[in-house]
Design a protein around this nucleic acid. Structure first.
Lengths: 226, 226
DNA sequence: AACCCAACTGACAGACCCTGTCAGTAGGCC
DNA sequence: GGCCTACTGACAGGGTCTGTCAGTTGGGTT
């Protein structure tokens, strides 16, 4: 058990991206130089990109190294959304970096989690400009994810209230406010709701299936100039 | 060295998020049950969120688990920027999740790297110079910024060509494609154009003023259910 | 309440891995 | 050639790890 801990500590030390002599590491770890050499072998065997050069010392090839860490489903969603935003706003270099990171993370994920996220980033439309936080957004996101019918109490711009049953399809960010696009069962047509004008949300529990004419794709087709 | 490897293997097995009995794990690892119990102690001591319940088995509390992985400086920057964007745009749940992830990552970072990133996210966000995946995106962006009338050659979904004079108001990212929303002088109404279907762009040079009924705000009002 | 299940804990001897010491090789730089 | 440092091999001793055995605990089922 001591050895396991020492290997972890060695990584921590090497993380600074600087050069380290085996003798220094031996002093710090309070073991012999020979043991350090053996530990380095173990690290290399474990796939850690540590390199040693004669007469120079040891250094990490990839300077940043993330230890094993646990992520919740929501944190994963945050990473996906963040990457989607970066892909949209930043320069090519950062775009590609964001994609690479996401690929690495996704590959490290077990199947069920990956499924639950499928298309999440894509369903978010965002133009980052102003901060907006609304209470019912998590509920809406969950409804989109799990294809759950949503009952909302809505206040239109003219002040009129209405209760609607919708199939939430996508969320959009318009710079000033978030909206939710969905198929409105009440009006039997697509509608866009400003999230800050949704007073109440309720999930009855029934799941809706994708019906031709009521999907996100069908909605997008409307935005084609005649 | 064998023990170190076995601990790593145990994590890999537990990653599936399912329940595992110590006896099964012992068989798979070809060690005794007692050793498995000791290994579990080590994992818990290392901060791995594995939980064991009497009469049930072992399971990972946080089903998503990232293995050690190397990140480049740029990828790290992309993560930071993404988290910053999420914090500014999404709901509280996602905001907090983004912050949590960032904290975890930062704690795993060596000092010099951390310094280099200081304040990175905010600066980038303050200057949202959108990058162009498509050639005419910079032109459109400039036209939006400077309120310049735009002449475009457009191909609709049905294949019909048209030349239009528009007042570009906003660009949107729909996950699959970029669109540009604008007031179409030709049709005398708002229209949404898919950027990848804009064949040609031309800026005549005349600036347009904000006219009531033709602004972005007016367009957004349309997405209000009656 | 008895019973099963499987996680835990403690103890202990033996096996095995790990470690330090010593000696020597190899590649780069002055 | 001399110095630096990474590397390798061998070997004995010590320490860690492991299996066996016995027993406890908590939750669920019958």
């Amino acid at each position: 058990m001591r050895r396991t801990d020492r290997l972890f500590d060695l990584i921590q030390v090497l993380r600074d991206g600087r050069l380290h002599k085996a003798s220094d590491l031996a002093d710090k770890m309070e073991v012999s130089v020979r043991t350090i050499y053996r530990d380095m072998d173990s690290l290399v065997a474990s796939g850690i990109p540590v390199e040693g050069e004669r007469g120079v010392g040891y250094i990490l090839r990839a300077p940043v190294f993330m230890p094993p860490m646990a992520l919740t489903q929501t944190e994963l969603e945050a990473l996906h959304l963040g990457a989607a935003l970066v892909r949209q706003t930043a320069d090519v270099e950062l775009q590609e970096a964001a994609t690479r990171v996401l690929t690495k993370i996704d590959q490290a994920m077990p199947e069920p989690m990956f499924r639950a996220l499928d298309g999440f980033g894509k369903e978010i439309f965002a133009a980052p400009e102003v901060a907006a936080s609304f209470q019912n957004m998590p509920v809406i996101r969950r409804a989109i994810r799990e294809q759950l019918t949503l009952l909302i109490d809505y206040t239109a711009l003219d002040g009129s209230h209405s209760r609607r049953c919708i199939r939430p399809l996508q969320m959009e960010y318009w710079g000033r406010a978030w909206t939710c696009t969905g198929w409105c069962e009440t009006r039997d047509d697509f509608r866009v709701f400003r999230v800050d004008r949704i007073n109440e949300t309720l999930i009855p529990g029934d799941r809706f299936a994708s019906e031709p004419g009521k999907t996100l794709m069908d909605y997008l087709k409307r935005f084609t100039p005649s």
